[in-house]
Design a binder for these strands. Sequence first.
DNA 1: CTTCATTTGTTTAAATTTCAAGGAGAGGTC
DNA 2: GACCTCTCCTTGAAATTTAAACAAATGAAG
Lengths: 179, 179
Amino acid sequence: MKTAPPSAAPASAAQEPPAGTPWLSDEEQRVWRSFIHATTLLEDHLDRQLQREAGMPHVYYGLLVGLAEAPHGRLRMTELAMKAKITRSRLSHAVARLEKNGWVRREDCPSDKRGQFAVLTEEGHEVLRRTAPGHVTAVRQAVFDRLTPEQQKSLGEIMQIVAEGLQPDEAGADLPWLR
Amino acid sequence: MKTAPPSAAPASAAQEPPAGTPWLSDEEQRVWRSFIHATTLLEDHLDRQLQREAGMPHVYYGLLVGLAEAPHGRLRMTELAMKAKITRSRLSHAVARLEKNGWVRREDCPSDKRGQFAVLTEEGHEVLRRTAPGHVTAVRQAVFDRLTPEQQKSLGEIMQIVAEGLQPDEAGADLPWLR
DNA sequence: CTTCATTTGTTTAAATTTCAAGGAGAGGTC
DNA sequence: GACCTCTCCTTGAAATTTAAACAAATGAAG
């Protein structure tokens, strides 16, 4: 009996999906399964590491980093949302939480009264300085330390391609951000 | 000014983390950034596709597939949790939800009174049959169709390595599943 | 100036996930 | 049997995410 992929097709083999697209081959299934497992385990791992050391999940940490990279630690909500690849709604909630922690502050936009800036506070900078080392270590141990230079290069190219294909900007639509 | 990685170190460069671990190089930062973006976008994409077509998130779909792969569409809760790389707690909630949908049924384990089996119902099988094609198509379009055979192979190897490194079984601990 | 469509960001409720316990049975050991 | 520990799974509350609707402001037409 054929083994079905963890997140693709069910075991009922012996036929293809209606229009065109064939099932995943055994090899493709193995790749896909590894991908799902690796990303699931990795996100869990990083989430816990950061929750423990920094008191926030990985996505939130990414938001602080995103702000730290920006000109004056400031970014319009929409820009930050795009940078982090999350919806504006999710960002609103996240920033509200980070604001309560004192890591981030909101500021009105002078030119556009609808606009809001998310600003990294000094405390925010501090948390990053304090927790970045641990996070980098975790990332290294889980990923880079285990891969050869060639694999790292390959990984970068592959992820770049996949990300581009799902990016809502250039080619396709641009509103619901996906689809 | 150096640009910091999306989820690693803040912009404050010019020094290394205290003990040993160096910051990510520019190239490593690019790779890591691509990785985060790709996986974030991909999971969002698949979640929406499945939510729309199958009325459930990607993880839940994975649970049904996991059961479909098992001998009689049956699996002990713990086994299913391990297979899907999620906590038993999360699985409990998930199965409760899937049970309400009629896709899954619970059964007591005769030999071990603590045990529970999660069983894929006929309706469960049906949902998979109906929605698998669309899911496979989504996965293909987002990933496999965009990669060369060499890249697919490489991706498999890399993900395999990363997953193994985070796997709680063999070497390290085995209880909190991570760490 | 009025209207209509769009953009920005928030808000509410529902769904999902996480976290910390907890209940009950299994498996020793004495 | 009493006792202790571990395992299996569940539970309830808190935190986070999603989905849908909304107010306010912008901007382009007309």
